[in-house]
Design a protein around this nucleic acid. Structure first.
Lengths: 346, 346
DNA sequence: GAAATTCGTGGGAGCGCTTCCACGAGCCCT
DNA sequence: AGGGCTCGTGGAAGCGCTCCCACGAATTTC
């Protein structure tokens, strides 16, 4: 009795391929060809099918399609980070923006997933393993994140946004954090500053480690000793930057320059500096990192290290696409050059 | 030749139900029952199946399941907003946090989707119509957003976060914006301030309109005329708030209080006030809206109108769940009461 | 002790789609 | 003119899963 449904469907639920085929007077296969833009369809058939599709307001059922094609045309951008205020980080917003822009030209859809704890990480891992997405871009991982391992082991195409903490073999795209930090520090030294401090990010994030390492390298190269009193750790937030700057001022009252590992932190540092009565850049020169919007609107505007976000996000989806299509070298990665943007703060 | 794959599967690709059934020595149906926690399975069978699942590291294919159940156990949180820096708005971050927390207890997964322009809105509409999600929570809609209509018309369960601009009949959850603004303004008037200004949000957003309306109501009720010089429009951002406050100071130099329609804007306003040499709260009393984190860390800490975000997000998923299960009254909605939080700024 | 239940189980029919394959019609080449 | 072609097409076999239905065995009931 369910059989004649195909011949006299009273439009129960959304229309199906068969109903379109019936209306257009062709076979299911032909409709499928039209939908998938196969060239092997006669113009007449195509027109008839398109008309039927329009009339029925037909939308293909992606689940059914995925079941056979093994593709979902969806990729996930996973933010694995316990601290939920990371959303407010302009760097994160820029990445989301860039990735979705890079995807705009394609048929791919971007879904954002957040994992604040191990439980949510598992949930996301399950989601990915169950075949909801073709691939994953993973952001902001701290040292012990489970996701890279789970996903890799499950065979889910994966590209990290940021170099993995341990040298595990996973594809990634990153800015040249160490190089950028080095150039920033060298710039400060070149300005004639003698006590160049650093305000780092969290040291369980590779970006924090690398930017710190760049400062150490530049300092050492200049024949100076990396004085621990010139180092303070922040958490990439504005409030954290303000607090860390205050500490730094305490540890090393004689500092005359500071490289800050992110622009939000630099804005906080600017505030702490002002509160302490130091003028920027006269008394203390400041260089930030990220070239976020705030770097332009801060007072004074920040000299900062710009990451080529558009290049990075393009590479990100490019690399992931290659993995999905199965034509990627193992753990192919990219490190993108940074650029010093000079403004008023240094 | 593909037929005996079922009997001698060499584990091509991820394991399937059949392979588990084979290994456990039961039928496909029984495995399905175990996976779906049906009670009608003997303990022995259950144990055998569970062992097989573990051994094969079996994960059910969600696409196949969805195809028959018509459920995806996924709901989308759609941010329809051209301005990409909305991400930085703490209110948005809080909603995301709240919704995913409300979902944590369930088997539902939350995906975030962003639509910056009409094209992306279409893409999202297609995504939803194609059956990728069971329902949609839609955020931050400006006056002419296509999504509510498309989604409603496509029969996708939908709840708006924020009252729709025109009185269209769609389910929504919103804070009592007008009531909150009224209380804030009354508080300012009650403090003995005679020139109470308002710094609104964008007037093409209902939250902007409602909060402005609350100020007008309180002002009128106090027997005062809502002076246009006491009104300035911001865009819910800190920078916008700073600029708007400066304008306000220009239009009405004699103001002695201001109700600001969002905390980020209030922080900007605080800065403009300081730049203009006005003391807060002595010269100008300030009340914000949202009770965001910044309200606590600002100088001085902000008196602000708190929205019951946890209640709102719980209602949001509750209402959506009801729609998905088909047991919701048409366009069932909620308006949640706000609360004035007194701090130092007013 | 026979009939009526319950219970766990397996068979099988689909969900809506893609895609391989075969088939007939029209075409060109020598 | 006949054996190749290509080309558009429809038939049919699944993709991995759920769930209805029927079946036999174990249990209950009068």
């Amino acid at each position: 009795m369910t059989t004649d449904l195909t011949t006299s469907a009273p439009a129960t639920g959304p229309p199906t391929l068969d109903e379109v085929a019936l209306l257009a007077g062709v076979s299911r296969a032909t409709v499928s060809r039209v939908v998938n833009e196969s060239p092997k369809v006669s113009p007449e058939a195509r027109v008839a099918v398109q008309a039927a599709i329009a009339q029925l307001r037909y939308v293909p059922n992606r689940m059914a399609r995925s079941l056979v094609t093994r593709r979902t045309d969806t990729i996930a951008l996973v933010l694995s980070e316990p601290n939920s205020q990371v959303f407010s980080d302009p760097f994160f917003a820029s990445i989301v923006h860039g990735v979705s822009a890079a995807l705009a030209e394609t048929e791919l859809t971007l879904v954002l997933l957040t994992a604040r704890d191990a439980r949510e990480q598992q949930k996301i891992a399950r989601y990915a393993r169950q075949g909801h997405v073709d691939g994953v871009v993973l952001m902001s991982l701290h040292s012990e994140d489970l996701l890279p391992d789970i996903l890799t082991e499950a065979g889910v195409p994966l590209v990290l946004c940021g170099r993995p903490y341990d040298g595990r073999s996973v594809a990634y795209v990153d800015a040249d954090n160490q190089g950028g930090a080095r150039v920033a520090t060298e710039h400060l030294i070149g300005l004639g500053r003698s006590r160049v401090a650093v305000l780092t990010g969290p040291m369980d994030m590779i970006a924090g480690v690398d930017r710190h390492a760049g400062w150490v390298a530049a300092t050492t190269d200049a024949g100076r000793r990396p004085d621990p009193a010139l180092v303070a750790h922040g958490d990439f937030t504005e409030a954290g930057g303000e607090a860390a700057m205050a500490r730094l001022l305490d540890q090393a009252p004689d500092l005359d320059a500071v490289f800050v590992a992110s622009d939000p932190m630099a804005v906080g540092a600017l505030r702490a500096l002002r509160a302490a009565g130091r003028r920027v850049p006269e008394d203390v020169a400041v260089v930030g990192f990220d070239d976020a919007d705030v770097a332009l609107t801060s007072d004074p505007p920040l000299t900062t290290v710009a990451q080529p976000l558009d290049v990075m996000t393009t590479e990100l989806v490019e690399l992931l696409g290659r993995q999905i299509d199965g034509r990627a070298e193992p753990a192919e990665s990219r490190t993108c050059p940074t650029r010093l943007v000079r403004r008023a703060s240094a």
